[in-house]
């Protein structure tokens, strides 16, 4: 089989007092073995809920995976019971989060935290687990790793904590790692180190990666494929070079134009950025037709009536837009 993960028509909804929020609404994506799939979008587009659905970490209630399949290396994750999923999680599929401070236990030493997962999943003794934890910390480039084993999270910088998270996530050689905004809380020079680290670890450990970010630059540097999400749906899905050389969805184009780029510092300071007008629609009451209609510069009559489907426009390049029909 070519792909390690195949998500088909996934719908994850949340029941709230104000109605149903369709956080993920019919998403289909795949991750090829050894590749990185980037998922881009702004807050509330459903990118984190997609990742949590794959991890089966959606709080139920209020959340519910309504329909769809998540095939992981031939296993339907949605058919597994809690115990089976728990065995997979951390060993076969792992996740790193945006805030390395909030995801580490503040009262446990770093070494013990990394060793915990190793002991649990690989059945190693405490001593051997610690040994392996040290190896992992060295692998992710932790300076003076041996002394660091005895440190608590508050004694480390943000970049080092993120290295610990990555060491933990990769300690059982998982086949898939989900990284949710892993560099957003970090400074640029540290972000560059962590992106290089994720790319290098992917080579060394052979893990496939889903990289969730709002930063198109990060996607360009680390991913092979990208899915752009808007209001719970994938609106564009293709190889990374196609995405940047030939963006087909007006939302993707808007995102690219509205990001100030250091390669294109304008001569004229008065120059304004091209913006996407308005704000992300309310997920409680999405408009009929295309979710992006209110903000779209090339909206047509049909966009207000019927929702476009995600269709292959050019081979390997899918887009959800009436303009491209």
């Amino acid at each position: 089989m070519h792909n390690i993960l195949q998500v088909r028509d996934l719908k994850t909804h949340f029941e709230t007092r104000n109605g149903t929020v369709k956080a993920v609404d019919g998403v289909s994506v795949e991750v090829n073995r050894g590749d990185t799939l980037g998922i881009v979008g702004e807050s509330g587009c459903g990118k984190t809920v997609l990742a949590l659905s794959v991890m089966r970490l959606i709080p139920e209630p209020p959340g519910r995976i309504v329909s769809g399949t998540i095939m992981f290396d031939g296993i339907d994750l949605l058919s597994l019971d809690k115990e089976e999923m728990r065995k997979l999680r951390g060993r076969e599929i792992s996740m790193i989060f945006q805030e390395p401070m909030n995801s580490l236990n503040p009262v446990l030493k770093i070494g013990d935290q990394v060793a915990e997962a190793i002991g649990l999943h690989q059945g190693l003794s405490k001593k051997d687990s610690l040994e392996r934890a040290l190896e992992m910390l060295q692998l992710v480039g932790m300076p003076s790793a041996k002394e660091r084993l005895k440190n608590y999270p508050h004694q480390m910088s943000g970049g080092m904590r993120q290295r610990v998270m990555i060491a933990m996530a990769l300690s059982c050689n998982p086949r898939l790692m989900l990284a949710d905004e892993p560099t957003t809380a970090l400074d640029v020079t540290i972000q560059a180190q962590i992106i290089d680290l994720i790319n290098a670890m992917k080579e060394k450990v052979g893990t496939s990666v889903i990289l969730i970010t709002h930063d198109l630059g990060v996607i360009a540097e680390a991913a092979q494929y990208a899915a752009v999400m808007y209001a719970g749906k994938v609106v564009e899905y293709c190889g990374v070079s196609d995405l940047f050389s030939n963006p087909l969805h007006p939302y993707t184009e808007g995102l690219m134009e509205s990001t100030p780029n250091i390669g294109e510092i304008p001569d004229d300071k008065e120059k304004r950025l091209t913006v996407i007008p308005g704000t992300v629609p309310n997920l409680y009451s999405l408009p009929e037709g295309c979710s992006f209609q209110e903000r779209c510069p090339s909206v047509m009559e049909i966009c207000r009536k019927r929702e476009p489907e995600l269709k292959e426009k050019v081979p390997g390049h899918q887009v959800r837009c009436w303009k491209q029909e």
């Binding site: 540290i190 560059a192 290089d196 540097e221 050389s245 250091i262």
Partner: peptide, 25 residues
């Protein structure tokens, strides 16, 4: 220079110069 080199460029055909700074502030 290092700060500028560290900014991810939204263009996959441009490969970032790897003058990634070592260590933390």
């Amino acid at each position: 220079k290092a700060l500028l080199a560290a900014v991810p460029v939204p263009n996959p055909s441009v490969k970032r110069e790897k003058t990634v700074l070592k260590g933390d502030i």
